[in-house]
């Protein structure tokens, strides 16, 4: 029995995504200009209830900023004991059962966890001509609503493969919730168009910044340990970290 447990634990470890570290950036220029004020604040006797913000820059391996990506502030390291169950991490490919080759190709060219991405809407008119599942959904909508416009706009509602439509998104969300619970999720943030996020609104202490879920299939999970500083009075952040995804060695993981 214990052998089985050890094997299972080893297997789970083997399926863990590659780990990526972060770099504290050099002291930001704005802080240098206000060094005296910052130092004065640090020296104040009473500890503030809220920690200074943390600015994060998220880049891919080629140093391109990664926009609109979710980051989490955690109490515990995602790679520590009792961390996420990496073996149960959903893979998009597992939720494409029954999909036609055309649909697989259509989805592979787009970056979305579900069919509800509004950016898809503009492409539905073409998709109903080339992808069998979209065609079926369109015809079903036409039958129900007797309106081409509605049949196209509500295409996902009548999409025949529910597992393809949202199941991956659901599973991923549920997995992230559980992973967040195990790692003591404090708050989550989203990077802006420049791959930047400013994390604010938490108590002073030690935290980990992580994406928890790889940003791509087989991608890395950041394990960025940070110790907060007191709030900076003149800017939203007191610390800056750069998270750069390591170059991938193979498509299948570590």
């Amino acid at each position: 029995m214990s052998c089985l447990f050890v094997l299972a634990a080893a297997s789970a470890r083997a399926q863990a995504p590659p780990q990526a570290a972060c770099q504290p950036s050099p002291t930001p220029v704005a802080v240098k200009a206000d060094a005296a004020a910052a130092a004065a604040l640090t020296a104040t006797a009473t500890a503030p209830a809220e920690a200074g913000g943390i600015r994060v820059f998220l880049y891919d391996a080629a140093k391109n900023p990664l926009a609109r990506k979710r980051l989490y502030l955690l109490r515990r390291s995602p790679f520590g004991a009792g961390g996420p169950d990496w073996a149960s991490m959903p893979r998009h490919a597992d939720y494409l059962q029954g999909a036609s080759p055309q649909l697989r190709e259509w989805l592979a060219r787009r970056d979305c966890d579900s069919l509800y991405c509004p950016e898809f809407e503009a492409e539905f008119a073409e998709a109903v001509k080339t992808v069998p599942e979209f065609k079926r959904a369109y015809e079903e909508g036409l039958r129900k609503y007797r309106s081409e416009r509605l049949a196209l706009k509500w295409l996902p509602v009548n999409f025949p493969l529910k597992n393809v439509r949202t199941e991956y998104f659901r599973r991923k969300r549920a997995w992230l919730e559980e992973a967040g619970r195990r790692t003591g999720k404090v708050v989550s943030f989203m990077t802006d168009g420049k791959g930047r996020a400013v994390l604010t609104g938490f108590a002073p202490g030690e935290y980990y910044i992580s994406n928890l879920f790889p940003l791509e299939e087989g991608g890395a999970v950041f394990d960025c340990k940070v110790t907060t500083l007191p709030p900076h009075p003149r800017q939203m952040w007191a610390l800056t970290y750069v998270l750069s995804a390591p170059a991938r060695q193979s498509a299948s993981g570590p």
């Binding site: 891919d60 080629a62 391109n64 609109r68 060219r109 787009r110 970056d111 991405c117 168009g193």
Partner: peptide, 22 residues
């Protein structure tokens, strides 16, 4: 999480990393 997706690069090829480039 459903909506806030950066548009993919049109030039991305299948099998290549699907990072969003901006």
């Amino acid at each position: 999480d459903v909506m806030a997706r950066a548009p993919s690069d049109a030039g991305d090829e299948r099998g290549a990393p699907r990072f969003v480039r901006a």
